[in-house]
């Protein structure tokens, strides 16, 4: 039993990476590659978001702000400075987001609870307004088209593998964090902040740290998105984008590290299937997701985990 959990984790990682790595080989159209890319980017965005909500208990309704910033740093720098700036723009965008999330974090974390949620929403919408209105610089509602990645990354398959490596690396880093002492501290902050203070630890300091981490990876997801469709749009800042990662987390399971990733995949695939099939897609998607949440209150991954626990002999449950 000792090597049990570790072994199965390794198997899951291998299967997941192998599955995504085989998409370009097995696909029948470039459309499927596009779909897999969307799953990866949204999966990263959702997992990063869940560090904030599921792990630490901070429901931000404004992570689109950082997702959008990541995308627009790449879009604008490539537009104005050339495609050689594509990769540096990813790094510069993340640095800018580190600074922004630090400063905004100082403010929004002070208020806490519902006010935190509302304030993050307000800042996200503010960024959307600015991007929308500042047509001369950002292209406003037209967004930015023709964002070309440099050199060999122009090849969609090469770009896909580039994306796959960065996304998996990021998720791995986040997973290490989630199971480290820092991650344990974050879960404790969610469950009993008063007690955390009485361990001599600072609640807000830890909240600020995870807010920055989550925002940083949201920005990375946004910047990677810019190269998939070669275009970006103000919608990336819009509140519906923030809402979508919330939905993905709920659907996949807040209490499971990979829950939001699975939730992202499920929503993207459902949207794809239903969207191709009927024009009433948003209504149908809404109903499907609603029934899934009602049927699987712990989320898809949470319910699977529960099932696994139930089938195990009680003794073997230790260390789960």
């Amino acid at each position: 039993m000792k090597s049990g959990p570790k072994f199965s984790a390794a198997v899951l990682w291998t299967l997941m990476i192998l599955g995504f790595a085989l998409v370009p080989v097995l696909m029948r159209s470039s459309y499927q590659l596009n779909l897999a890319s969307h799953v990866l980017v949204w999966g990263l965005f959702a997992v990063a978001f869940n560090m904030l909500w599921g792990v630490t208990g901070m429901l931000s309704f404004g992570q689109a702000l950082y997702y959008g910033l990541g995308a627009y740093f790449v879009g604008l720098m490539v537009e104005y400075l050339g495609s050689a700036w594509y990769l540096p723009a990813i790094g510069i965008g993340m640095l800018a987001v580190a600074a922004t999330s630090f400063l905004l974090g100082l403010l929004v974390i002070r208020v806490g609870g519902v006010y935190f949620t509302m304030l993050t929403l307000a800042f996200g919408q503010l960024a959307w307004q600015i991007t929308f209105k500042w047509y001369d610089f950002t292209g406003g509602d037209d967004g930015i088209q023709g964002i070309a990645a440099p050199g060999f990354l122009q090849n969609p398959i090469a770009y896909y593998y580039f994306l796959l490596v960065l996304v998996m690396l990021s998720i791995w880093i986040l997973k290490r964090m989630a199971y480290s002492p820092f991650g344990l501290m974050l879960r404790c902050v969610r469950q009993n902040p008063e007690r955390v203070r009485f361990l001599g630890r600072r609640v807000r300091r830890n909240q600020l740290r995870v807010y920055m981490v989550s925002s940083l990876f949201a920005a990375l997801a946004g910047s990677l998105m810019a190269g998939i469709d070669n275009s970006i749009h103000t919608d990336m800042f819009f509140w519906t984008t923030s809402g979508e990662v919330i939905l993905m987390s709920v659907l996949g399971g807040l209490n499971q590290f990979f829950g939001p990733f699975v939730g992202a995949a499920a929503i993207i695939i459902i949207e794809d299937i239903v969207g191709a099939w009927t024009e009433y897609w948003s209504l149908i998607i809404g109903s499907i997701i609603m029934s899934m949440v009602i049927l699987f209150p712990k989320g898809l991954v949470g319910e699977l985990h529960q099932l696994k626990l139930r089938m195990m002999p009680p003794k073997a449950r230790r260390s789960e």
Binding site: R176, M177, S180, P181, L184, L199, G200, R201
Partner: peptide, 18 residues
């Protein structure tokens, strides 16, 4: 353990598993 980690000032460590 979270109290022990606090006591040892190790709660900022973010890489190695608990």
């Amino acid at each position: 353990k979270v109290a022990c980690l606090s006591r040892l000032d190790q709660t900022r460590r973010f890489w190695r598993p608990v």
